[in-house]
Structures are given as C-alpha cells and as structure tokens.
C-alpha cells in the first residue's frame, strides 16, 4: 500500500536573531499510512515541532518536499489540522466561536458550521460551556476545545504538538484515553509529538525516535500491543519492556543540561 503521507529527505535551517544558523532538521524522512497513529519522541530542540510546522505548511524546508495523498504540500490545507501545546485558543472568542474558526475561515455560513461545532463540543464533553471564554476553563477543558477545533474542519490528519504537556498527570491520562476513543471512532491519521515515553508507547502504532539536533530518525519502534488499550495495559510487563526499549534508544541523545 502507498503511504498516505511521505517525504523526501527534509533539511531545514533557521537563522535566529543575532545568532548563528541552526540546522533543525537534517535529512529527516517520514512515511505515514492512512489511519495510523504515529508518535515522535526526541530530545528537546531536536526539531520535532519544526517538522510538524513543515507538515502543517507554515514552514518551508530548505531541501526536500512532502506529499500528502499524492499531492505536494505548499501551504496550509483543510486535510491537516493541528492541536497546539499552548492550546492556542483565541482568548476573545467563546468556546463555540473558537471551535468554529476553521469552517469560518473556509467561508462556511453560520447555519452550516454551528451544528457540526456543537456536535464536536458534545464529543469532547464540553456541552454547556459553549458561551464560556477560554480564561474561564481549566487546562484540560482548553485542550478539549483545541481538539474540537482541529476536528471541526474534518481533517484527514491530526497533528498534535505535545498537546497534553501543559496538563496535570491525571487530566493527561484522561485525555489520552479520550483521544484514543475519538481516534478509533473517526479514523484519523495522527502524528503526535511528545516528550513522554509512556504517552508515546500507550497511544501509538509506531514510535519514531529522533536524534539530537540536527534531528533525524534514529529508530522506528513498532508497538505491537492489542487495541483497544485500557489503563491496565499500562501496568503490564510487555508495556514496560516497550518503554524500556524506547528509553534505551533515546537516552544517548539527551543532553543533561536541558
């Protein structure tokens, strides 16, 4: 089967203000099948988020190109949507207006976008909070809005940039379980960037371990655990073996000063 998303070797160099250029990605290559859940783990600053921004169409690589469904990526597109680490909710918009953002920018009328937005708000469990502003919500609720907003344009691919990193441990566990349910039901392709080995192992079909900067693929680890995965699975010896495997692959790349 042809992979749904694929790239040639991607290289991208930044020039920060008053500093020397930094090569964020060097010959990074990825292939994703449709409906697959893939995580990227790697040390801080290895270019994981940069890669997501390239895939999202916000950054242009210096070398290499990316294809999605056989079409070259040249900019943002409706088949991709991102869930941001810092939530990225517009603070001056209500929950409803935030969820409706994508369809609104596509030029959809209120009549056509409202029912769908309401459906998604219900899906993420925020019924009754439609008129609230982001500052009135907890972190977990904010990220539910972020998720609903990403789903509102009905994308094929969900890009998730450490979406649960800002949440407390319990909320995080809960959100992970709910994300798996939604993924299972809506059959999206998910590319999930995270710092957490446990999170990557629990959620993914495959885990891509990246090297330190400039980032490239160190190893791809297949997670052969049955689905649906429950909380108990996280306590099983098999799960721990996988975590250990990921950790052993990753640890040489970590910089003790970060």
């Amino acid at each position: 089967m042809e992979p749904y998303i694929r790239s040639t070797d991607i290289t991208l160099t930044f020039t920060p203000k008053n500093r020397d250029p930094v090569t964020a990605l060097k010959d990074f290559r990825i292939e994703l099948n449709s409906g697959e859940f893939v995580s990227i783990v790697g040390p801080s600053g290895c270019g994981k988020s940069t890669f997501l921004n390239v895939l999202l169409g916000l950054l242009k690589p210096d070398m290499g190109e990316m294809e999605i469904g056989g079409k070259k990526i040249t900019g943002p597109g409706v088949e991709r949507a991102m869930v941001f680490q810092e939530f990225g909710l517009l603070p001056w918009r209500t929950v409803m207006a935030n969820v409706e953002l994508g369809p609104e920018l596509k030029g959809e009328s209120v009549a056509s976008r409202r029912p769908r937005a309401q459906e998604l708000i219900n899906l993420v469990g925020l019924t009754g909070f439609e008129g609230h502003f982001p500052h009135e919500l907890s972190g977990g609720m904010k990220q539910r809005v972020g998720l609903a907003r990403a789903l509102a344009t009905d994308p094929e691919v969900l890009l998730m940039d450490e979406p649960f990193a800002a949440l407390d441990a319990q909320t995080r566990d809960l959100m992970q379980a709910e994300l798996l349910q939604i993924w299972d039901k809506h059959k999206k392709t998910v590319l999930f960037v995270t710092h957490s080995i446990e999170e990557a192992a629990y959620l993914s079909d495959r885990v891509i371990v990246m090297t330190a900067r400039p980032g490239k693929t160190k190893r791809i680890i297949k997670i052969n655990l049955p689905r649906p995965r429950g909380y108990e699975m996280r306590l099983s010896p098999e799960f721990n073996d996988i975590k250990l495997d990921i950790w052993n692959t990753l640890k040489d790349e970590l910089n003790p000063r970060e």
Binding site: N53, G57, G75, P76, V78, A81, F84, G88, W92
Partner: peptide, 27 residues
C-alpha cells in the same frame, strides 16, 4: 505568535489574520 500560527494553519490570509488575531489582541 502561537495564535498567528493557529489562524494561519487554517489557511487565513493576511486580512483575516488582521481581523481575527492582530486587532483583537491590540484592543
């Protein structure tokens, strides 16, 4: 910056960016 990226990721043009993010943020 995050909000700018969010709105751009949904394919907003410069004018929409102005209306949806820049202006309310400056209010």
């Amino acid at each position: 910056r995050v909000l700018v990226n969010v709105v751009r990721s949904f394919g907003a043009n410069e004018w929409q960016l102005m209306k949806i993010v820049v202006l309310p943020n400056s209010m």
